[in-house]
Simulated scan of single mutants.
Amino acid sequence: MKLFSGTITSLESGLAYSSMKQKAISDNIANVDTPGYKAKDVQFKSFLEKEMSNSFPSKKTDDRHIDFSSKETAFNTIVRPNVNYNENNNSVDIDNEMADLATNQIYYNSLVDRLNGKFNSLQSVIRGGK
């Protein structure tokens, strides 16, 4: 028996990804004028595929026991290879970074709104529909 549905766990993973992506974008923007700096990006798809293929089933002796699952949230941060936008070998394109920043912010806000909705539903159930 799970305390929360799989939706909340998925939303939590999405928020962890968005946070890591925000950090990578912030690092890229902060180093836009640093000579030789290579832009970073966060990969989510490879992490998701790995997690989906490596489920860790726990041995439960009673239906009331909680399922154990992997809590690893280390997404792959990569350096964009063989890309130079500036004469100083810097690979940060500020226009792309600002667009990624806006996209990531919209993604994060939608996840937070959905999570708030789930918790409001739980709160309504606890109060008895009042």
Rank of each mutant, 00 (worst) to 15 (best):
E97H: 10
N104A: 03
H65F: 13
P57E: 10
K59Q: 11
E97G: 04
Y85E: 09
E51L: 10
F75M: 05
N90A: 00
T77F: 12
E97R: 09
S18L: 02
E12C: 04
I78Q: 05
A99V: 14
F119A: 09
G14Q: 02
M20L: 11
S70F: 07
N109K: 07
I94S: 00
N31E: 00
A24L: 00
P81Y: 00
D93H: 01
F75V: 01
K130V: 04
G129Q: 04
S58A: 09
Q105H: 08
A30V: 03
T7D: 04
T77N: 10
R64W: 13
L48Y: 13
M20N: 12
S26A: 14
M20C: 06
I126S: 04
F75R: 06
H65C: 05
E49Y: 09
S53D: 10
V83H: 09
S53Y: 05
S70C: 11
F119N: 05
N88S: 10
N88A: 10
S18A: 14
I8R: 01
A39R: 14
V32T: 11
A39Y: 09
A39K: 15
N82S: 15
R80F: 12
I66K: 13
P35G: 06
N104Q: 07
I78F: 04
F119L: 15
Y108V: 08
V125L: 06
L11H: 03
I106P: 00
S46K: 15
S10N: 15
E97A: 07
E49H: 05
N88I: 12
G128E: 01
A39P: 07
N54A: 06
